[in-house]
Computed example of a mutant assay.
Amino acid sequence: MTSDPDWQTDILGADFEACAFQAAGADGIERTATLVRHLQPGRGPARAVLFLHGWSDYFFNAELAEFWTGRGFQFFAIDMHNHGRSLRPDAPGGYVADLADYDAEITAAFRIIGSLRPEGADPPSVTLMGHSTGGLIAALWASRHPGLASQLILDSPWLEMHGSPAVRRATRTVVGPLARFRPESVIRLPERAFYWRSISSAAEGEWSLDDKYRPPHAFPVRAGWLSAVLAGQARVARGLKIEIPILVMISGASANGMFWKESMRSTDAVLDVNMIALRALGLGRTVTLERIDGALHDVFLSAPRVRKDAYARLARWIQAYVLDDGRAE
């Protein structure tokens, strides 16, 4: 990993900087990731938050960064390898064979954040936040690396497949052999862009998305990647025993199907929120579940009035579990 990150002005504008870095996993392979930070002159290093995006996605939500820095946090986001700013032309977009392959770059990001403190100051307390597949990755990382993150916030984490655990087990049985022998083979699934349609300003949403970093139909689903997700979900189903406080935020309802329907403007059109709620209970000892009526799959990309509700609930939890965490200032 580069010891002295080279920060450059980010694609989000002058208020953001990014640095690419490499981290070697347990397999010895070095992978490139990109750390993004929101600049906040004059703010102290006491607390920070690190955000992990979902699959086939990248960090673009400047409003989320401003929420955190407005409350005195340093804000960072990581575009994980094979995603967003970290995409490389010789690598398949979104692909990973084992979700633990992200561990090295997340741990490296924590080290970079800690290195930015003034000389003699303690490293900041870091809250880890993840969306969708990034939420699954964040939960698994926190369970494998106790003592590094101070709190865990999950925005519609992909903790379980639709319907029931039986769906996951059946899918794993079918995908397993292909993942072992041809892990990068593409699984042909119906293409749907309903969620993209609900958020992109190029369709019916309000968010400006770069299709190079976040393709409307997502990256191809590959056998090895799907097998890695299913294995991660199986670990969640067995219980993770995470000790730090956890907040899980989900929509009040899901909408699924092969055709667009108007309810997809105000529901999770990607995941089964009831299964997420069920699996959330097994993440750790202190879990808060917030259901946000009218929310999309990414709660913080929902309609303005819904986001206002979500941010108010998040602020209330921060006050209780982060700012008033029982430790001396």
Rank of each mutant, 00 (worst) to 15 (best):
H217Y: 13
R182I: 11
A138N: 11
W196P: 10
W260Q: 05
A170T: 06
P190H: 00
V273S: 03
E206V: 06
S125G: 11
G252V: 00
G120K: 07
P118Q: 06
W207I: 10
E66P: 00
W7A: 04
T34V: 15
G326K: 05
P45K: 14
L301W: 00
P157S: 07
F219C: 04
A170E: 03
R307F: 07
G72S: 11
M161K: 08
G70T: 05
S254P: 14
M249K: 01
A100N: 14
L209D: 11
T133H: 00
G13H: 01
E160K: 08
I242V: 03
A142W: 11
I78V: 15
I153N: 03
N256P: 08
R37Q: 07
S115H: 08
S150T: 15
E204T: 09
G25Y: 10
T34P: 02
T34Q: 11
D324C: 15
I153F: 14
F60V: 05
D293S: 04
Q74F: 12
D101Q: 15
G114H: 15
L52K: 03
K212M: 04
R307N: 05
S208F: 05
L87I: 12
I29N: 12
G284L: 09
V287E: 04
A24G: 13
A26I: 10
S125L: 11
A138E: 14
V229I: 08
G284D: 09
D211T: 15
G44S: 10
P215D: 05
L226F: 10
A121M: 08
P123F: 08
G147I: 08
E191R: 15
R71W: 06
F194C: 00
Q319N: 14
H162N: 14
A310K: 00
A328H: 13
L226V: 03
G120S: 06
P220A: 00
D293Q: 12
P177G: 10
G25M: 12
M264H: 02
S185Q: 15
A14I: 12
R169L: 08
Y213V: 06
Q151D: 15
M129I: 13
P124S: 08
G54R: 02
L178A: 10
A46P: 06
W260T: 02
E63S: 13
G42Y: 14
L240P: 04
A218N: 14
L178N: 08
